[in-house]
């Protein structure tokens, strides 16, 4: 049984009980290079492991890109 969450505007089904750290690993995203917002609240990097994702969560995963 999975959970439906929204990541960067896209709907995604993930395994129940997945932590934020687990999701990033699944997506092959290096935690040290991104910042994550969960339901509009920033998640501190040292809380990725302990953050259990829930059905209906909205995540924004951002990083730095070239800009002026």
């Amino acid at each position: 049984m999975g959970m439906n969450i929204k990541i960067n505007g896209e709907d995604k089904e993930i395994a129940s009980g997945l932590s934020l750290a687990g999701l990033l690993e699944e997506l092959q995203i290096r935690p040290a290079r991104v910042v994550v917002e969960r339901n509009r609240a920033i998640v501190a990097r040292d809380a990725y492991e302990s953050t259990q994702l829930a059905d209906g969560d909205t995540l924004e995963i951002v990083h730095f890109v070239g800009g002026g």
Partner: peptide, 15 residues
Amino acid sequence: VAVRRVNITDPNKEN
């Protein structure tokens, strides 16, 4: 630098 969404379907390994 600018702040933008990571492309999750093709997360560029280079940053």
